[in-house]
C-alpha cells in the first residue's frame, strides 16, 4: 500500500522551506482544482490564469506564515479559486470581452483612420507619381488644377487669381483631367492604393 503524506504535513514542510512539498501539493490537487475552475468558466486559457493566480495567493500566504490549519488545505485552495472566479465574472461584466470568429471580425467594422506602414508608403508613391504627371500638363491647365486640388481654392477664387472667367477656369480644369487620364492610359500607369 502506498503511503501518502498528509496535506497538512506537506504544508508544514513547505513553510519550513521544502519546495518539493509544494510540487506534490500542486500535482495532487491539479485535476480537482482545474476541473472545478473549468466547470465554471468554460475556457481553457482563463482556467490556466485562475489556477495560476490561485496558487500565487497560496504561495504568498504560506510564505508569509499567515496560513492557519483550521480547515483543510484543499477546501481553502478551492475557496481562493472560487473567489477568483467571481472576480473574473465581475470584471468581465464591467468590461465584456469580445472575441471575433472566422465569420465576423470586429476590426473589419471598426478601425482607426491611419493607414498602416505599407499602405502609407504606397499612398506616398502615388502622390509623387501624380505630381510628376501634373508637371506634363500645359501651364494654364496645371495652374488651375494645382489651385483647385492642392490649394483647395474655389473656381471663383481661381478666376480672380488667374484673371480668367469662371467658365474658362472650369474648362481648363476639365481639360487638365482629360489630359491627365490620357497620359495615364498612354503610359499604362496604375494609380491605386
Amino acid at each position: 500500500m502506498e503511503l501518502q503524506i498528509e496535506d497538512s504535513e506537506l504544508v508544514r514542510d513547505y513553510i519550513s522551506g521544502d519546495e518539493k512539498a509544494l510540487e506534490i501539493l500542486i500535482n495532487r490537487h491539479n485535476q480537482r482544482i482545474t476541473s472545478f475552475i473549468y466547470s465554471k468558466v468554460l475556457d481553457r486559457d482563463i482556467t490556466e490564469d485562475i489556477f495560476q493566480d490561485t496558487f500565487i495567493k497560496v504561495i504568498k500566504t504560506l510564505k508569509r506564515g499567515r496560513y492557519s490549519e483550521e480547515g483543510k488545505f484543499l477546501p481553502w485552495v478551492m475557496r481562493i479559486s472560487h473567489n477568483l472566479i467571481i472576480d473574473h465574472f465581475r470584471k468581465n461584466k464591467r468590461m465584456p470581452m469580445f472575441e471575433g470568429n472566422d465569420d465576423f471580425n470586429i476590426f473589419s467594422v471598426i478601425g482607426d483612420d491611419k493607414l498602416n506602414a505599407e499602405k502609407q508608403l504606397i499612398k506616398d508613391q502615388i502622390d509623387t507619381d501624380l505630381r510628376e504627371l501634373i508637371e506634363e500638363l500645359p501651364d494654364d491647365q496645371k495652374e488651375v488644377l494645382l489651385m483647385r486640388i492642392y490649394k483647395d481654392m474655389s473656381f471663383k477664387e481661381i478666376s480672380e487669381n488667374t484673371g480668367v472667367s469662371i467658365n474658362t477656369a472650369l474648362g481648363r480644369m476639365r481639360y487638365a483631367l482629360i489630359n491627365l487620364r490620357k497620359i495615364i492610359e498612354k503610359n499604362n500607369i496604375v494609380l491605386t492604393n
Binding site: 473549468y38 489556477f51 504561495i59
Partner: peptide
Amino acid sequence: KKVCPKTINFLL
C-alpha cells in the same frame, strides 16, 4: 482537466 506543465513550472 489539468493545467499544463508550463503553468506548474512557473508556479514552482
